[in-house]
Design a protein around this nucleic acid. Structure first.
Lengths: 346, 346
DNA sequence: CTGTTAGCGCGTTCAT
DNA sequence: ATGAACGCGCTAACAG
């Protein structure tokens, strides 16, 4: 009494099996499956039940071959285990999903080689669009590969000239705000630990940092600026180095979620009291900042919204919008908490 | 001087374009691309440079249609923005990638409907294998869909009888260890906030919890056991409720990373001093536990290793290993820190 | 409204 | 060692 589905390749039933079971031609089955042309109600019902009977699922590869559309979007990010990036996936999916697209998340693990491989995978699989956060803007192999893409691409917070739509996060204004605030509190030596200047966030944060000092007429001590990597280890070692130096800062800005973690750990190990002995500013991890004692002042961004915006931009392109490249700037917010105060020996 | 690639559909060059550029037949190009049969060294070189010239990437859909293999693996998880899940992707990718497979991460956002949709997407796209952490073991539509899968499936920490390989995390031993420890310190009323008993982790943690109390000859007060959801909000409200109840616990175990966050926040808001007024145990977030003051005792698991194991199991199946379903159990560790002490009013 | 047919790009025979 | 031809499952265009 089994459905007795011939089931061709891979054991999956095909459109032919359905046609045979329903006693119609494959064309009709295709029409029903695609919901396209008009089919007699009675026929449609027969086909539908035949599909259910044999457990039919359309073969995406065959469909893609015919239509040159896969209804899939790739999202390439440097590190899937970092919520700052993966939240973007949640946002993008929330707008792409209802439009009939499936989002596939890809994590390059910050490796340019992996990045290129994934970009090729996206091209090979004929994905209909791509959202990407590059691990390194200066890797030319990656940008070349990106340029080969023949589908809409949305870039996230990177300066790469490929004529793509971009969703930027503001870093300068937020940085200026917090640095000015610290200066107003009396701080003269402020340390900054952030990502490499090889990517926009690092560059922009350093720019905002220098700008705020300049605006206040303060000198810039390059020793206080650490912008090379993004990791908890980096945050820890640089913070340790800053705090144990000859002329340590009275305030530290750990701009980046990984760096925030590491810097915090270093501060704990050195038993510096926040904010009495040291003012501290974190970033990109609201939850962490809330449960630490004392609550930490942070620069925060809504990464889910970044994902939504990226999804919207992509959807427009997918729907044929032919405007010149659009740039969207999303604000960062500074959440003031108890971790900053006037420097003690002032 | 442009490569002048005809570039068929979607603007991507095909095997034909390469053949024309190299002055050979498509069969030869295919042989070179597949690295299969022997080709004259000189011919191979010509083809290779022609490929580079036109920027050829084999069309995955066409390949899949012929070979019934896609070299892709799906990883379905409840929430991509939770590192506990996304770390698994990192581990799985690290063993699947070198074997030539591309891992696509899919986040169901804890929605059974989304889960079914993604499972169908996996089937339609003829992915070669699947790693899955179910959001709800009791959703029959999901398990049915899972059963339809004709490719190897690896389940993560769930009890679903589909004859698949499974990677389990131990929850019972770790829970017994920490509860016994708290009891030894003098605690008699211990609160537990954890995931729903509809999924294995919730069930097992509750089981270990009850077991440890029973072993110590202590009564179980069901009011102290909260096992319904996984979210920061849930952790916060339940913790608040426990701490403000008539006969509050002297120790709380927040078993789950989201719950950990929320519970911690509730403790802060109620200004309970850890460990003087309250002993506190978190889970699944080592970084958070380190930077909070005081450092928090946690139950921890190596999720990257879970991913690696899952990848290995899958790879074996992909390579034709036909053993009966294998079950792997990975230990959890209890990291003792300063957040637990003898109850104060003891 | 429904059946028939021609490829989509590729890997794989089978000849040469 | 290489080329020609077939068909994987499907959609779209055309007949009827």
């Amino acid at each position: 009494m089994s459905p007795d589905a011939p089931a061709s390749a891979r054991g999956q039933p095909t459109i032919r099996d359905v046609a045979a079971a329903a006693g119609v031609s494959i064309g009709t089955v295709s029409r029903v499956a695609g919901g396209s042309a008009r089919v007699a109600e009675q026929t449609r019902a027969r086909v539908l039940s035949a599909m259910a009977l044999v457990g039919y699922q359309p073969n995406a590869a065959a469909r893609a071959m015919r239509t040159n559309k896969t209804k899939t979007i790739g999202f390439l990010m440097p590190d899937i285990s970092n919520p700052v990036f993966s939240r973007v996936a949640v946002g993008a999916q929330s707008v792409l999903g209802p439009a009939g697209y499936t989002l596939f998340a890809l994590s390059s693990n910050r490796s340019p080689v992996q990045e290129v491989e994934y970009l090729q995978a996206v091209r090979q699989r004929q994905m209909d669009g791509l959202i990407v956060t590059l691990a390194d803007e200066t890797a030319s192999a990656t940008t070349e590969e990106l340029r080969r893409m023949r589908v809409p691409v949305v870039l996230l917070d990177r300066d790469v000239d490929i004529g793509a739509d971009v969703v930027f996060s503001d870093h300068v204004i937020a940085m200026e705000t917090i640095v000015s605030h610290l200066i107003a509190l009396g701080h003269r030596r402020i340390g900054l630990v952030t990502a490499s200047e090889k990517i926009r966030p690092g560059r922009e944060r350093v720019r905002g940092f220098r700008g705020a000092l300049a605006a206040a007429g303060l000198p810039v001590d390059d020793w206080l600026i650490r912008a090379a990597r993004q990791s908890a280890e980096y945050g820890a070692t640089e913070t340790h180095d800053l705090l144990t130096g000859r002329d340590p800062p009275t305030a530290i800005i750990a701009a980046g979620s990984d760096i925030f973690y590491g810097a915090m750990k270093a501060v704990r190990l050195l038993r510096r009291d926040i904010p009495r002995e040291l003012s501290f500013v974190g970033a990109d991890d609201l939850l962490l900042s809330e449960v630490i004692g004392p609550p930490i002042t942070v620069i925060d961004r809504d990464m889910v919204e970044v994902g939504r915006e990226a999804g919207r931009l992509l959807l427009d392109r997918l729907n044929g919008v032919a405007l010149p490249p659009r740039h969207i700037m999303l604000a960062s917010s500074v959440v003031l908490r108890d971790s900053i105060a006037a420097p003690s020996h002032a």
